[in-house]
Design a protein around this nucleic acid. Sequence first.
DNA 1: TCAAAAGTGTTTCTCGTACACCCATGT
DNA 2: ACATGGGTGTACGAGAAACACTTTTGA
Lengths: 230, 230
Amino acid sequence: MSYTYEHPRPSVAVDLVVLTIVDSELKVLLIRRGEPPFEGERALPGGFLRTEPEPGEDLEQAAQRELQEETGLPPGAVFLDQLGAFGRADRDPRTRVISVAWYALVRPTLAPFVKAGGDAAGVEWAAVEGTQGLAFDHDAILAAAVRRVREDLERRPLAFELVPETFTIGELRHVFDVIHGQAEDKGNFRRRFLRMVDEGLLEQASGQRRTGRRPARVYRFVGAQRAPRR
Amino acid sequence: MSYTYEHPRPSVAVDLVVLTIVDSELKVLLIRRGEPPFEGERALPGGFLRTEPEPGEDLEQAAQRELQEETGLPPGAVFLDQLGAFGRADRDPRTRVISVAWYALVRPTLAPFVKAGGDAAGVEWAAVEGTQGLAFDHDAILAAAVRRVREDLERRPLAFELVPETFTIGELRHVFDVIHGQAEDKGNFRRRFLRMVDEGLLEQASGQRRTGRRPARVYRFVGAQRAPRR
DNA sequence: TCAAAAGTGTTTCTCGTACACCCATGT
DNA sequence: ACATGGGTGTACGAGAAACACTTTTGA
């Protein structure tokens, strides 16, 4: 309760769970740590909040900055929302660190550009399934992110962040299939989808997609704002 | 990206949005600040994360500790979950502070004991509606908490945290009415409720409640775990 | 006896679910 | 021609929504 500012302070880090879908798999962006602690091991990308020059950057700014540094993608091209704060006392063996974790969704069309732009040596897209043994408490953060995306997928327009700007019904359904780990019924998904169209959330775009089989109509997301709620 | 530990560190605070229902109104626990900044103004209860002795306390521990200090209620009697981190650079005029906010739900039966137990001078239950002008960014934190509770009420067993251990259907419906600001249909709510009973989430308790009118059956929540997901 | 809340029933509509089937295209 | 995914139809059931009605109590 003592509301004084004189006391030792923890470090505040910002960590990112950057997700995309490649080859029908949910992937997460991991780095290989180049320094202790956990040197040589894999971890989520992240960094410390800058507090200089006073008063420093907003938490959200810090997350956006890290995201940009780590992916090389233009700001605004990637969906970003806060996951929460992770603050187990022993999560960093060296000193006290609070991590504010964020999750980001990268369109598959942009994913290939990420490795090129990243500064860190060992940046890679790793399959989420089977990923384990990350540094710090990053296993737990990753798990929380996946749970969160799975839940939010149902009630917020997240899926549109994992397809190209224009997309077919099949492509969108594929996002759900991958994230939920099971196939949706084609016809039922289509109906749900078309309902969104005449609610005005989606509109048919011009052109069509020729992807091997029968060409499909393409749509575009126009619903309200894609921004998070905060 | 520089993953070094040598840099100025922000303070980390833990703030609480403690909610209850009294007199058919959603109430939030507020304190009157006794020192700068914002001396004399109202604010959410909270305090700084303790990092001594090394490595200090977990974030969740800190929240529980504050909750206990502020309400005087026994630990475990109150539902607590994390809201998120609030870190606008200018949120504290004096120095850089990151706030990790939590929301708590106090049963109406316990609410009256809170003022007695609190140490701070000006602890009060204030109606959420119309509350404004809180210190720091606490208006925003409060708004986020209310939005979150409204959403979670639908898909997690939150309502049971705002009734006595045993409760009538009407009492539970009242929670929804107050939080959503509009009355549910009696019959429809009842059906939803009874569905939970034969799903095993609720069980009829012994006895009945005599509260003025016709006595009502009382129920008890037995569903899985009440704990948050983290 | 009257108001108020408990408790019950009914009807309509929407949506999720499961499944069957046709259509257009590249190989 | 045939496999593949796009596109369409149908039928059932659970649940949301709106509303009317009976029952039990205290005042």
